[in-house]
Write a protein that binds this DNA or RNA. Structure first.
Lengths: 333, 333
DNA sequence: TTGTACGCGTTATCAA
DNA sequence: TTGATAACGCGTACAA
């Protein structure tokens, strides 16, 4: 059993009120007893109970963070940024995985509500709208990462998918590529839709037509596998460059190229999206669109804390950045 | 303000005690009022307060997890396993990074104590012994991952570093290699020591001598950089195979080889340790020693929950597994 | 300068 | 079958 202020009060021969005041340096308490009690508390190994404090203050200094799975290299950095910012502000974060199951996600949110977290951050939910039934009961701030939704308590921080995709495709056009493929992800329809839109926008803006045959959206088991699926049909269609929904897909494509002895970037240029760590370790290293992942997490947490202070906040859309590496090159006619 | 049982009691015209009982299906309450109140609770959006329950039960159903940084791909899977197991058992986990700073680690543990977590799990602490001053005040179970320590409330789950290292070096010997280098990590002295011991054991057991010149332990900034540092001296010393402290170091070595046009595995065989995800994506893919990371996390959490149930537990040492990929080959004389 | 009394939301005990 | 009361650990208004 942890030591309580009553325990201290008893051994000090004072009331627990005096102990409470002495410990927070209340000047109403005489310097002498104040120091005596503080020393006693240290000796007895007293650590105040956040549980009791929370019951009183109706604040738990706790943020619940819902993620799909921590195993996703993209999410890792978001969590890192969020946790770091929270820690600095004296908040702790509950991490809970939904594994993309709507049921699990609802259960997780339910748990957070029971625990009286002060706010909830949700990353890359695929079911955002699904738990709107829950959301209208929620009276605490909810900040969504990369998943804009409408609602009174709903706020969001997101990356500019469309701008990022344009950046990638415009760069490929600059390199002289004309037949540019896109490998999408059907299981994340929203961001996929925006990236596809960016891909199309870049092409049409430069006066090129979008050949639907060059847009692939197979339902492979994993992002990695998805990358390898369309290689042959792409080559048959005269594709010289491919923009992928994310880095894992691009890595899958690189692996497939390696297997089929397709030289990257000489025969095929490849661009990813996210800039996860492994993108640096592939051969060739991956040209990609960097999402400011750490910043995404930090910003989401900062916004959350601002909301808790009662401040007004504005939804944020962060720009992406093109990272040039070795998987792209001038088109060889 | 969340709805409380008192709110429900008021609108139902009964005492809050009755509400409490009705909600937990106490058969003492008449079926009629029981159902009436349960329905009312649902309608009013009642969610019980874990805070109040914790104050009474002295249990928070919460585990504190101290990690160095979630950005470490090794730790990610450990957290995944632990969180998953916790969730299934109705526990939540507080995640907090120490960033290898002893001060931060102490602060994190302090925070956990304030929050009255039921137990603490610490992964790969570099300062285990440092906070023994805190530990003797701790009255809750502490489970260490990959960091054995002695103490009443201290338990551990670890991987068999020595056996893993032997596995790696014995395999290289089988391939005909004799001049085998080791790149260590001075900042993790314990596990590094054990892996080095395994390296030596494998060599001497097979009747070979350990040339100290082949053991490198530079103090590079990062694991990755460390991998590139000794390449030239290794080659000059006639090394044909290298065993690395971990995969990141091995990846650093692969990158250096790529730059210096050293063919892997033809000119140099490389073995890593951990089997992190990126090890699959390198070219060539990395032969490595797999740590059962997910299991490490699951087991640590299971042990923790067992301890909370008052069960006896035994410290665990898990074996490693050799994963054959493309970065190793028969020595070419 | 210090102490008493009450409340935060819940559960357990005892009484009705 | 239901209700009043106390307790968990802490902070605060009010009293002494």
């Amino acid at each position: 059993m942890p030591v309580t202020i009553k325990d201290i009060a008893k051994t000090a021969g004072v009331s627990h009120t005096t102990v409470s005041r002495a410990l927070k340096g209340n000047p109403a308490i005489s310097l002498e007893t104040r120091e005596r009690i503080q020393q006693l508390a240290r000796h007895m190994g007293y650590v105040p109970s956040a549980v009791a404090q929370s019951l009183l203050s109706r604040r738990t200094q706790t943020i619940g963070m819902v993620i799909t799975t921590i195993a996703d290299p993209f999410i890792v950095q978001v969590v890192e940024g969020a946790e770091q910012t929270a820690q600095e502000a004296g908040y702790s974060v509950f991490l809970s995985s939904s594994h993309n199951s709507p049921d699990r996600e609802m259960a997780v949110v339910e748990t957070f509500r029971r625990r009286r977290v002060d706010a909830i951050i949700v990353t890359s939910s695929r079911v955002g709208s699904l738990y709107s039934s829950q959301l209208d009961q929620i009276e605490i701030p909810v900040v969504l990462i990369n998943n804009q939704e409408e609602g009174e308590y709903l706020h969001s921080v997101a990356v500019d998918d469309l701008q990022g995709a344009r950046l990638a495709v415009e760069y490929l056009l600059t390199l002289g590529h004309r037949r540019i493929g896109y490998i999408g992800a059907t299981d994340r329809p929203k961001s996929n839709g925006r990236r596809l839109a960016g891909y199309r926008a870049a092409l049409t803006q430069c006066g090129h037509i979008c050949d639907p045959a060059l847009v692939l959206s197979s339902a492979a088991d994993s992002d990695i596998e998805r990358g390898g699926v369309g290689l042959e049909s792409f080559l048959a269609a005269g594709v010289t460059a491919v923009f992928c929904y994310n880095d894992l897909t691009a890595i899958g494509l690189l692996l497939a190229c390696h297997q089929h002895r397709v030289a990257v970037p000489q025969e095929l240029s490849v661009v990813g999206f996210d800039d996860i760590d492994p993108a640096l370790y592939t051969t060739p290293s991956l040209t990609t669109i960097r999402q400011p992942r750490l910043k995404l997490g930090q910003l989401a947490m900062t916004m959350t804390l601002d909301l808790l202070k009662g401040q007004e906040t504005q939804d944020q859309i962060l720009p992406c950045e093109l990272i040039l590496r070795e998987s792209t090159s001038q088109r060889i006619p």
